[in-house]
């Protein structure tokens, strides 16, 4: 089933290759806005965007907020504690309340997979998924594509290693969809306990050995390793994880000279990436952050701005 309606961005698989190209092109022109003295265009003037965040997040929320403001939308932030009905207002009531205030788009971050999609069925406003549980983080994948697009032109035929906790990562899920769709060759790298059995059955390339595949990569995409994975018994220790999967100077020497290193942030220096490597020029971590604003501008414009135009055309 394709997720999300016309009005919502729930996951990458609802977007065609053409739509992704459009977002990349549009992001490119919006990026120019961010370099102006007056960093604003009136594309979404009069629109209201609410950031509804059930999970702590600094970069994604700020990135969406900046994106909306640079398009001249009004922005409100609603930080809710995630809880069941017993403890507070239900998700449905929160969504309906915000809808009643007359918002145009709801940017949702939630620890439970599927929550943004549920909301999208309850309200008429656009719902933009800003990360839900282990399910999806579509704007992250789009900004990653954009970053790679700027560096490589196209990722068609390029080899990308996604390294780390594939099992629990919404960034990995969205990037698998996005990068496969755009023609990249993906290798999923990590310990067997963090790679879902299903992806091996689905024909995606999997390697338990980072060292064996690192030399083939055009891009190394590191995932954040949550410390609770150790408590859950999925890895024996952070030190052992780092021994086999950390990108450090020694391991990087086996990679191609021009390899691009990416990470969705926030990074765990000393776990999945050494401090030294994080600060190298071929690490694109900060470019990803910069590009995030432009890509989210394009996304907001696609799902909000164009609706307006269509509606006016009907009149």
């Amino acid at each position: 089933m394709t997720r999300g309606g016309e009005k919502d961005l729930i996951d990458i698989d609802q977007l065609s290759r053409e739509e992704i190209d459009w977002i990349i092109q549009t992001a490119r022109s919006f990026e120019e806005v961010s370099r102006r003295a007056v960093k604003k265009v009136p594309a979404l003037r009069g629109k209201t965007v609410v950031n509804l965040f059930y999970e702590p997040s600094t970069r994604t929320r700020m990135s969406f907020e900046l994106a909306a403001k640079r398009l001249s939308a009004d922005v409100l932030n609603f930080t809710a504690s995630s809880s069941s009905v017993a403890k507070g207002e239900s998700l449905k009531d929160t969504a309906l309340t915000l809808q009643a205030m007359g918002l145009d788009a709801l940017v949702v971050r939630h620890p439970v997979s599927g929550a943004p999609e549920m909301i999208s069925r309850w309200i008429d406003a656009s719902v933009i998924n800003a990360g839900d549980g282990m399910h999806a983080h579509p704007t992250q994948a789009l900004l990653d594509l954009y970053t790679l697009h700027k560096e490589l032109g196209s990722i068609e035929g390029k080899t990308v290693a996604l390294v780390g906790d594939i099992l629990h990562s919404r960034v990995a899920r969205s990037n698998i969809q996005a990068m496969t769709k755009m023609g990249a060759r993906l290798i999923l790298v990590g310990p067997p306990t963090l790679i879902p059995r299903e992806v091996e059955e689905s024909g995606l390339e999997v390697s338990y050995s980072f060292d064996r595949v690192i030399g083939e990569c055009d891009v190394i995409y590191l995932l954040r390793l949550q410390r609770e994975r150790q408590r859950e018994g999925l890895i024996p220790s952070l030190a052992e994880y780092a021994r086999f999967y950390q990108l450090n100077r020694e391991r990087l020497e086996k990679a191609r000279q021009e390899v691009i290193v990416m990470h969705p942030g926030p990074i765990n220096r000393g776990v999945e990436i050494s401090a030294e490597v994080a600060d190298l020029p071929r690490s694109y971590l900060l470019d990803q952050v910069t590009n995030g604003v432009a890509v989210r501008m394009a996304v907001l414009f696609k799902f909000l701005g164009r609706r307006e135009t269509e509606a006016e055309g009907e009149r």
Partner: peptide, 13 residues
């Protein structure tokens, strides 16, 4: 159920 669906939906299996 743990399977391809749970992986795609990001729900624990």
């Amino acid at each position: 159920h743990e399977g391809m669906r749970s992986f795609q939906l990001g729900l624990r299996g």
